[in-house]
Amino acid sequence: MSPRVVAGPTGPRNSEEMTIALPGGALWGETLDALDAAGIDTSEARSDTRQLTYAAGDFTLVQMRPSDVPTYVEAGAADLGITGKDVLLEQRDRALYELLDLRYGACRMVLAGRSGDERLGETERRLGAMRIATKYPRIAERWFEETGRQAEVIEVKGSVELAPLVGLADGIIDLVATGRTLLENGLEVREDIAPSTARLVANRVSHKLRAREVDDLVERLRKATWT
């Protein structure tokens, strides 16, 4: 088969709307507020339907798990995406542009242990390594490597606070916003690893070929979230 020549102008496909991958869950509400403030009509996304994609003027909004956002954006299934910095740190080998700190959804990645309990230090001293449960195994491994310590990182998918309570781990690495969940489970912060907020990311090709539209949205979102 000979290669097919496709008619069309060189350059960006301005005719098509841009797709934005949005995080469901904790960031969903503030993300829609930010988009509204940036002049993007999110009424369809707010309506109580069970859709996964929503029309919003020049944009198509797609709702997904925050940790799936980098996957869709890297592959170009979405031109832009919003997700937490925690997700980007955990998936740091993704080829994405990180364009803007949206400043909402603030929380911290921390290492926590049982309150008033020296088990963390003790296991490190006597057994050579801490056992740490986390949903963020790559952030955890990097943290221990950077701080020159040995740890056994145990990946769990559900409530990570459970692990030290029943003796699966000596401590946890997790994202905390207010610290209430830690407190309720008798845990306390021992080390601060990194702050996290919502970020705007872009596909590498969309960032180049749809530069004007991308930059326009960055400016609108900057005005909406930085004031």
Binding site: G11, G76, V205, K208
Partner: peptide, 10 residues
Amino acid sequence: EVYDPALGHI
């Protein structure tokens, strides 16, 4: 770097 509008990868 080479980009095509129909593909998300370089």
